[in-house]
Amino acid sequence: MAVYTEVSLDEASTFLTSLKLGNLQTLEGCSGGIENTNYFVTTDQAPYVLTLFERLSAEQLPFYLRLMKHLAFHGIPVPDPAANRDGDVLHSLNGKPAAVVNRLKGKSELAPGVDHCRQVGAMLARMHLAGRDFSMQQPNLRALPWWNETVPVVLPHLEPAQAQLLQAELAYQNHVASQSAYTALPRGAIHADLFRDNVMFDTVDGVPTLSGFFDFYFAGTDAWLFDLAVCLNDWCIDLPTGAADLERSAAFVDAYASVRPLTPQERELLPAMLRAGALRFWISRLWDWHLPREASMLQAHDPTHFERVLRQRVAYPLTLQQLHNADALPA
């Protein structure tokens, strides 16, 4: 959450008042991500997050905002976009598309344990099922077509061994996408970016309890298995090495499957989708790292992390059978 577009106290106050969200008390820029301008704002009514969209168009944005409203209506703990008197949830501020959502309680858990993974796995499955009757459709904008377009742009910045891996994995993913098993994967609205820092936990009776998913601005219509793979690549790995943590992986998949059992095609393609998830974020981090945009408080992520994760997923494929053998999942 970088700051590309500055918003003054007066501008924010007028904007929030127009949405009947109360009188502005504090305005603080956020530095946690890299796509949009974000501010934490507090009024005399409640805390909110104000977002100005820097890359997404006004045509694309209704999908994300309406998806959040749909999920919130179905009991999924997600930010609920504020509407104006006409019912619109997409607004404009300083010449940019803008939205305001309620700020979730709690904080992100950056060193998750088994129970955190269980809670996120179960809620991810609930989210997928809740989105089945969401009427809007929009492709995952960072899926295979974007990888094919972006890899040639970042290749000149890589060492030969990195370039070889990137090209080989892209070819493999194009091959996977041509298979009937891939075509048969269950699909719907996915978050596509549900990392540790996009989930909140609040302490309830002394126990960390999942309090929300947020930052849906990479969401799209895609295979649910890809969403699961993205999560496993962040929640269930050893960060320094990128290696899979079998106990956390088993807990996550077991909790997910207890809500929405996996199909035979999903079981077959889990290793390939884990590689796809690692590839997607390696490409996007290479793009952000080597072709950065100017922004106040910008913190680009190190792309070598997902290079390590991809190498691990290629060398040591994680299958459901491995998790069964660990007595973590029902056979």
Rank of each mutant, 00 (worst) to 15 (best):
residue 278 A to I: 05
residue 42 T to M: 05
residue 129 L to R: 13
residue 295 A to L: 10
residue 107 K to T: 14
residue 283 I to A: 05
residue 149 E to L: 14
residue 278 A to H: 06
residue 331 A to V: 14
residue 117 C to T: 07
residue 116 H to S: 13
residue 201 F to Q: 04
residue 64 Y to S: 10
residue 183 T to E: 13
residue 167 Q to L: 12
residue 60 Q to L: 09
residue 189 A to W: 01
residue 139 P to D: 13
residue 6 E to W: 06
residue 26 T to Q: 10
residue 180 S to L: 12
residue 107 K to A: 15
residue 227 D to N: 08
residue 180 S to Q: 14
residue 110 L to Y: 03
residue 249 S to E: 02
residue 219 A to M: 05
residue 51 T to V: 05
residue 57 S to W: 05
residue 286 L to F: 05
residue 226 F to M: 15
residue 320 L to D: 08
residue 141 L to A: 14
residue 287 W to Q: 14
residue 96 K to N: 08
residue 199 V to M: 11
residue 218 F to T: 11
residue 167 Q to W: 00
residue 287 W to N: 13
residue 134 F to T: 06
residue 98 A to S: 12
residue 223 A to W: 06
residue 153 V to N: 04
residue 174 N to D: 15
residue 159 E to S: 10
residue 29 G to R: 02
residue 253 V to G: 00
residue 3 V to T: 15
residue 323 L to R: 03
residue 223 A to D: 08
residue 26 T to N: 08
residue 193 D to S: 05
residue 291 L to K: 10
residue 189 A to F: 02
residue 330 P to M: 06
residue 225 L to N: 03
residue 168 A to F: 03
residue 116 H to G: 06
residue 57 S to Y: 06
residue 231 C to V: 06
residue 263 T to D: 07
residue 99 A to Y: 00
residue 144 L to G: 11
residue 33 G to D: 12
residue 10 D to N: 12
residue 85 R to D: 15
residue 223 A to Q: 12
residue 100 V to W: 00
residue 152 P to F: 08
residue 240 P to A: 09
residue 130 A to I: 04
residue 115 D to R: 08
residue 152 P to K: 10
residue 229 A to F: 06
residue 56 L to G: 01
residue 168 A to V: 04
residue 264 P to C: 10
residue 234 D to S: 08
residue 119 Q to R: 10
residue 49 V to Y: 00
residue 217 Y to L: 06
residue 103 R to G: 00
residue 109 E to W: 01
residue 260 R to C: 12
residue 220 G to P: 07
residue 73 F to S: 12
residue 305 H to E: 12
residue 248 R to E: 01
residue 223 A to L: 12
residue 299 Q to K: 15
residue 24 L to W: 02
residue 331 A to R: 15
residue 86 D to S: 14
residue 142 R to F: 13
residue 212 G to W: 02
residue 205 D to H: 12
residue 288 D to L: 07
residue 123 M to I: 02
residue 307 E to T: 01
residue 101 V to T: 15
residue 236 C to A: 15
residue 149 E to T: 13
residue 236 C to I: 10
residue 83 A to L: 02
residue 157 H to L: 03
residue 154 V to H: 04
residue 271 P to K: 09
residue 117 C to W: 03
residue 189 A to N: 08
residue 244 A to Y: 03
residue 278 A to W: 04
residue 304 T to Q: 14
residue 296 S to F: 09
residue 206 G to V: 04
residue 8 S to Q: 08
residue 7 V to A: 01
residue 122 A to Y: 07
residue 120 V to Q: 04
residue 63 F to L: 12
